[in-house]
Computed example of a mutant assay.
Amino acid sequence: MDPLPLVVIRPEPGNAATCAVARALGLEPIAAPLFEIEPVDWDVPDERFDAILAGSANVFRHGGVGLAAFADVSVIAVGETTAAAARSAGFAVARVGEGGLQPVVATLPPGNYIRIAGEDRVTLTPPEGVRIVTVVTYASRKRAVSAALQTSLNRGAVVLLHSGEAASHFAQECERLGISKESLHLACLAPRIAELAGNGWGTVAVAAGRTDKEVLELGARMCQTV
């Protein structure tokens, strides 16, 4: 039996990066971004912060000139991709987390932090003594599933899911178009993403780690085995 195709729906520039690695693994991915990231207007808070909490590389890609106000504030990044984007933008990275921002926040010392985020984000619960000010600097604009992608999905595929928003939107699009979930298999970056995708899929699996490399390797295995 021929391997299933691998569908990548994350927005650019991550989509192209994931597809390039997939090709290096011998796969022929279908690049189908279902989101477009856009900057939004935001006001810089007039106060000092102990650190920046960054849950996405998009913070530094789309934060704009307002980020200059925090040039001397170190970054606590959700993962290595976000940390790399912070360093490229000229920020010092104090800490790199793994498995989401909440585990990082739970261990923060008392202080005043700024969370620079997108419109769609996970709610954080800080411990006592930790104050978090949130500013939104970008938004994900949803795209509909194209006719070409619908045809591919109807034949069966493995779909990479990098975010909870992607999981919810993809599930809604499949329901809207009447695409059979049973023929689709989801490779998810984190357990929360799998939960938000809902039920009825052929297979739902979660990567062992929270990196693009690990979820891609999971997807590659699923293409051969499901």
Rank of each mutant, 00 (worst) to 15 (best):
A148V: 12
V133P: 05
Q102P: 10
R131Q: 13
V158G: 01
A83F: 08
A207P: 07
A190T: 03
L196Y: 08
L177Y: 11
R155K: 13
L108V: 04
T137I: 02
Q150S: 15
A106Q: 14
E195N: 09
A187I: 07
L124M: 13
T203Y: 01
D120Q: 13
R141W: 13
V96Q: 08
A166G: 12
G202S: 15
A157D: 07
G198E: 05
R141Q: 12
T203C: 04
G90C: 12
R143L: 03
E175H: 09
W201I: 05
G97F: 07
E195Y: 03
S183P: 00
A147V: 11
T134P: 06
S152W: 03
P191W: 09
N199T: 14
A84Q: 13
K142C: 01
P103A: 00
L184R: 06
L101N: 03
T137H: 04
Q102K: 04
G118E: 03
R121C: 04
P126C: 07
E98M: 00
A89N: 10
A139M: 07
K142R: 15
L196A: 09
R141I: 15
L153V: 11
A148P: 01
N154P: 00
G99C: 14
G100Y: 10
T123F: 00
G100M: 06
A92L: 13
Y138D: 02
A171D: 08
T125G: 00
A157H: 03
A139C: 11
Q102H: 13
A144E: 15
R95K: 13
T203E: 14
V122D: 10
T134H: 04
L186F: 12
A148H: 11
Y113C: 04
V133W: 09
V136W: 07
G118M: 07
L177G: 06
S88F: 00
V135G: 06
V104C: 07
I114C: 05
A190Y: 02
L184T: 02
G111W: 13
L153N: 04
C174Q: 00
Y113A: 02
T107R: 13
P191L: 12
A197E: 02
G100H: 08
C174S: 05
V158L: 06
V158R: 03
L186M: 14
V122G: 01
Q150F: 00
Q172I: 00
G198S: 11
D120S: 14
L160K: 01
T125E: 15
G200R: 04
V93S: 00
P191A: 09
V159T: 08
W201E: 08
N112G: 01
L108D: 08
V204T: 11
G202K: 06
R143F: 13
A187S: 10
L177E: 09
W201Q: 04
L101W: 06
N112E: 11
T134N: 06
L160C: 05
A83Q: 07
V135T: 13
A148Y: 08
C188N: 05
Y138H: 13
A144K: 02
G200H: 11
R87D: 11
S163W: 05
V159Q: 03
G164C: 05
L161V: 08
L186I: 09
V159R: 04
T125V: 15
K142G: 00
I193D: 02
G118Y: 07
C188A: 15
V105M: 10
P191H: 00
G200Y: 09
L153M: 12
V204F: 07
R143A: 10
T203R: 15
L160M: 14
K181D: 05
G129R: 10
E165R: 12
N154L: 11
